[in-house]
Design a protein around this nucleic acid. Structure first.
Length: 435
RNA sequence: GGCGAGUUACCCAAGCGGCCAAAGGGAUCUGACUGUAAAUCAGACUGCGUAGCAUUCGGGGGUUCGAAUCCCUCACUCGCCA
């Protein structure tokens, strides 16, 4: 397999061929909805403004969906503006209404712990140097001292229930069997309060977020207009979708996390490498700092020589480097080359194999263990029945050799490093340490 | 608080006493074709070494030779009326 496009990730900077950062983010497909385009364009072209984006601690890590927001924040920062990274210590305790079902409430301890993790992740994508250094805030700081009476009198009075009911997130739930609790119904007020607080404390005049957050973004704008008589703005990014209709950001049905302990650099690299031709250019625009000329050039290569998958390789290298660093990415590439290479696995030296194996989910076994059992132990299948079915369908490989007998064992399967490579289908792999 | 409707596998959704481990669609997985792509075609999709057995149709209890299907009860959701 050929080497990646480059061994140094693209420098983080905006493309000066655009008249303004607004034009660039529009070209990159980052704007789905917004308040007045002309006003935002003017605002972003002028003196530095303060803007914010919030992340709720609903899991111990951010995922690829959040990365869209982080990179938008970074692009605005590169244009000289001042980012506020908000982690929702209070909103995470309440729960943003999902379209399908009520959220399970996590304990305050757990939420507080996750806040810490998310702050660490958010800070890795922003710069904390210079005049427009990033600042981290936690909405628990101003929400927690608020009493129920103050909340209802000072904040609640500004909200009309009719307006609140019309928000997509709320009306979708009202029309579903799940219904909606008062708790989640109140969420939009809390988020509005955040915007107003940041407006007061930091003169924050722009909020960014996913377009599914649009209702919450406008709640804040309305509150600030009513209580502060000021006009502020919001940008809603599009929901990233795959052209084949499946959900973006899922691998094997699981979210692709930014935390390497939850999604390995190798798994993330593979995720991007497997991007559809139809989607890869859009992904480059959103998830990399490649300039317009470079991306347009890659688009031509996708059209003329799709089998080279150069756009996918570039995308995978760039994003994985951005999230995990170049070193981890180089390891992921080396492991990918070893595992998906044309050569016989037995020809690889122990060091190469051991390094590649370290990237994969693993399990231990003895040479007498059946392949079917090893599949279950390594998580490649969920049950013996599923293992047997997979073998019967011809979808199981031991060291790249198809396994046809569901009684087969790992006997003699250990490679130079003592590992055996178990594969299900074309690209789901596991390392088995054969004792 | 009253009345009515509903709760089926990852999602949507049939079934309304035995022929139901539960139709159909989507998602997912595998094979073929490829480029570790898409589309298409084929197969799989509760567990247990097949047959057979075990555990499933919101929870619990009951009727029956036999229940996802009937009855009671609890929980939750939706709607209308207070």
């Amino acid at each position: 397999m050929s080497s990646p496009a480059s061994s140094v990730p693209t420098v983080q900077r905006n493309d000066d061929s655009f008249a303004s950062v607004w034009d660039e983010i529009v070209w990159r497909g980052l704007v789905h909805v917004s308040t007045s385009e002309t006003e935002i364009r003017e605002l972003l072209s002028g003196a530095p403004i303060t803007y914010y984006c919030g992340f709720d601690p609903t899991a111990p890590s951010l995922h690829l969906g959040n990365l869209v927001q982080l990179l938008l924040m970074r692009r605005l920062q590169l244009a000289g503006h001042k980012p506020l990274g908000l982690v929702g210590g209070s909103t995470g305790l309440i729960g943003d209404p999902k379209p399908t079902a009520e959220r399970v409430l996590n304990t305050p301890d757990v939420v507080a712990e996750w806040v810490g993790y998310l702050q660490g992740q958010v800070s890795r994508f922003l710069s904390f140097e210079g005049d427009n250094r990033a600042r981290l805030v936690n909405n628990l700081d101003w929400t927690s001292p608020l009493t129920a009476i103050d909340f209802l009198r000072d904040i609640g009075k500004h909200f009309r229930v009719g307006t609140m009911l019309k928000k997509d997130a709320v009306s979708a739930r009202l029309n579903s069997d799940a219904g909606i609790s008062y708790t989640e119904f109140s969420y939009q007020i809390l988020q509005a309060l955040d915007f107003r607080e940041l407006y007061r404390q930091y003169d924050c005049v722009l909020q960014t977020g996913g377009s599914d957050q649009w209702g919450n973004l406008t709640s804040g704008i309305d509150l600030i207009r009513r209580s502060e008589s000021a006009t502020v703005h919001a940008i809603g990014t599009p929901l990233i979708t795959n052209s084949d209709g499946t959900k973006f950001g899922k691998s094997e049905g699981n979210a692709v996390w930014l935390d390497p302990a939850l999604t390995s650099p190798y798994a993330m690299y593979q995720f991007w490498l497997n991007t559809d031709d139809a989607d890869v250019i859009d992904r480059l625009k959103i998830f990399t700092f490649l300039d317009r000329a470079s991306i347009e050039q890659l688009a031509e290569v996708v059209a003329s020589e799709p089998f080279r998958r150069q756009a996918q390789r570039t995308l995978a290298f760039e994003v994985t480097s951005l999230v995990h660093g170049v070193e981890a990415t180089e390891s992921a590439i080396a492991a990918s080359a070893a595992l998906f290479g044309q050569g016989d696995l037995a020809d690889l030296d122990a060091g190469t194999i051991a390094a590649a194996m370290a990237e994969l989910p693993s399990a231990e076994a003895t040479s007498g263990t059946t392949v079917a059992q090893a599949l279950v132990d390594s998580g490649l299948t969920k049950s013996m029945g599923e293992s047997r079915r997979a073998i019967a369908q011809g979808g199981v490989y031991l060291n790249n050799v198809s396994v046809r007998d569901d009684q087969a064992t790992l006997h003699g399967a250990g490679l130079a490093s003592g590992h055996a490579v178990l594969r299900r289908g074309k690209k789901t792999l596991a390392a088995i340490l054969v004792n």
